[in-house]
Computed example of a mutant assay.
Amino acid sequence: MTTTTDTLHIVCPHCHTTNRVRSDQLGSAPDCGSCHQPLFGGRSVALDAQGFDRHLQRSQIPLLVDFWAPWCGPCRQMAPGYEQAAAQLEPHMRVAKVDTEAVPELGARYNIRSIPTLALFKGGREVARQAGAMGAADIVRWARQASLG
């Protein structure tokens, strides 16, 4: 018998529809009930302000966000490692990127002063932040540790 605590709300990275997924089926490659695309692709998802708010407010898994900009050398240097980390962190965490040049209001809202900056959100609020470029193993270690707190 499934109880409400066994079901998680997961926002689709493609159409941003909120889906209900049983927690024991997260690793079974669930698809979106609306657009039928995979809910997890093992890579980061680029978010605009509306998509960010939807994932932040509706998803019941942690949201890891890389605040970056295309002109930033350390951001570009960290990008491959961030994608490797996404493959390891999903499906227990949504891994996203926010381009602070394209979506400056999110950088301002969260007082992002240096990039790249990783921020981890749980339950709709920021719980941890780390500035500076990191490799994949360090990103995974930091995100997992921060999500436990």
Rank of each mutant, 00 (worst) to 15 (best):
D53V: 02
M1W: 08
H36M: 08
A128K: 07
A143N: 03
A131Q: 12
L148D: 15
P30W: 08
S59H: 06
L26I: 06
V103K: 00
D138H: 11
L26D: 07
A133N: 03
L106A: 01
I112T: 01
R129I: 04
E83F: 05
M93P: 02
R94W: 09
W68I: 00
W68E: 11
A102Y: 03
A29E: 13
R76S: 14
R141W: 02
P38Y: 11
P116E: 13
A146C: 06
H9N: 11
H36Y: 08
A133V: 03
S114Y: 08
I139R: 14
L47K: 08
R144C: 05
G81C: 00
S147R: 04
W71G: 01
R22W: 05
M134R: 15
R43K: 14
G42D: 07
R43D: 14
G51Q: 12
V127C: 15
Q50W: 07
R144V: 15
A46P: 05
V65M: 12
A87I: 10
P80W: 11
C72A: 11
R20M: 11
A136W: 12
C72G: 10
E90S: 04
Q60D: 13
G123W: 09
R125V: 15
S28D: 15
A146L: 02
D99M: 01
H14W: 13
R43C: 11
L89Y: 07
V45W: 08
V45P: 02
L89H: 03
D6I: 04
T4E: 15
A69G: 13
T18Q: 06
P80S: 09
R125G: 10
V140S: 00
A143C: 05
G81P: 05
P70S: 09
T18N: 00
L64A: 04
R113W: 02
D53Q: 11
M1P: 13
S147L: 11
I139P: 12
G123A: 11
W142Y: 02
E101R: 03
P74T: 07
L63D: 09
V11L: 03
